[in-house]
């Protein structure tokens, strides 16, 4: 029921994403470009099918991926306030991208080689932060302490990024800064197959972990008593969430708040912590919320497009504040 409702809402938002944009195209013409692309206006066809559609798909899939990454981190670290951006995973990926964009890109020719090296940089950066987090989580038993360590890692990577910016050629800095604002426009028709080819299977694979994730809700001692090797399980879960975060970050920039907030919205909507329901619910909700954020970026109309990272906090912060204030009332928190 709730799944059907969310799917319907996602389709509606998808339709709206095709209709609204910087260029005004009447809805009936949008419809025509979809059902009969041959007869439609060539420019409009280009805008609708090769710009708006990939962007909407990219935002939906990015949202699903980031939200699932956040859910995996929250359960793995037994910490409801964990998320790829707050634990520094996104900034780790950014740091990897910064190294490639500011110092590597000049040497590498543009095209496929360039964006593959950006993906590689993002994955390496995210992996480095994940390793640090695994290390800290073995010494810091308190989840609040781990969060603080994650925030510190985030600051550290930001400082490395600033240093890289300082010494980099100014043209590269500008493109890096624009990338850092977050946008789903970077995923065009050309990039879409690689983007979806990696994200869709990895996001879907998270459902394979539903059973052990449920065991992890009881903590590490119970999980290992139920037959799991907790260190191995944790490495898998962090690996999957690291890849999801790195890929989205490489293409769209470090997108904040989605990974932190969406699992909570999903838990509230579906009133459960059971991962067999929660994982698909988080995917769908993540896609929906991010599609909405993406739609809001075209709000100024002709005058331009807002950065995604200007929108996500507007949705994310009120939800987090609501959760913090009401944490005694929210069942899944205790």
């Amino acid at each position: 029921m709730r799944f059907a409702f969310l799917t319907l809402l996602s389709l509606l938002l998808l339709a709206l994403s095709l209709v609204y944009g910087a260029v005004e195209i009447p809805p009936e013409s949008v419809w025509q470009t979809i059902v009969a692309p041959g007869e439609a206006d060539a420019v409009w066809r280009l805008i609708v099918l090769e710009s708006r559609l990939p962007m909407a798909l990219a935002s939906f899939v990015s949202g699903a991926a980031l939200a699932v990454a956040g859910l995996l981190l929250q359960t793995t670290f037994q910490n409801p306030l964990a998320g790829p951006s707050i634990l520094g995973v996104s900034s780790g990926a950014s740091m990897g991208v910064a190294v490639v964009m500011l110092f590597g890109a000049g040497a590498i020719v543009s095209g496929a080689a360039q964006y593959l090296s950006i993906i590689g940089g993002a994955i390496a950066g995210a992996a480095a932060v994940m390793l640090l987090l695994i290390f800290f989580s073995s010494i810091l038993k308190s989840s609040a302490m781990l969060l603080i360590a994650g925030i510190m890692i985030g600051y550290l990577t930001s400082s490395v990024i600033s240093l890289l910016n300082y010494f980099a050629p100014s043209d590269d800095v500008k493109s890096f800064v624009v990338w850092g604002l977050g946008s789903f426009a970077g995923v065009g028709v050309r990039e879409l197959p690689v983007f979806l080819g990696i994200l869709v299977p990895f996001t879907a694979a998270s459902i394979l972990f539903a059973k052990p994730l449920n065991a992890l809700l009881l903590g590490e001692r119970y999980a290992s008593n139920m037959g799991y090797s907790v260190p191995a399980l944790r490495t898998w879960l962090l690996g999957v969430s690291g890849v999801l975060t790195a890929i989205v970050t490489a293409f769209c920039g470090p997108i904040g708040f989605i990974g932190l907030v969406v699992p909570h919205i999903a838990r509230m909507l579906f009133r459960t912590s059971n991962h067999f329901t929660l994982i698909p619910a988080t995917m769908l909700t993540g896609g929906l919320v991010t599609l909405l954020c993406n739609l809001l970026t075209v709000f100024p109309g002709k005058s331009g497009v807002l950065p995604v990272n200007a929108i996500t906090p507007l949705i994310g912060v009120p939800v987090i504040i609501y959760i913090l204030v009401n944490r005694r009332k929210l069942k899944y928190f205790n």
């Binding site: 409801p80 903590g219 838990r267 912590s273 059971n274 205790n334």
Partner: peptide
Amino acid sequence: VTTDSVLAGGL
């Protein structure tokens, strides 16, 4: 059986 705090409130 332990008394570790659990995040299972939503089950």
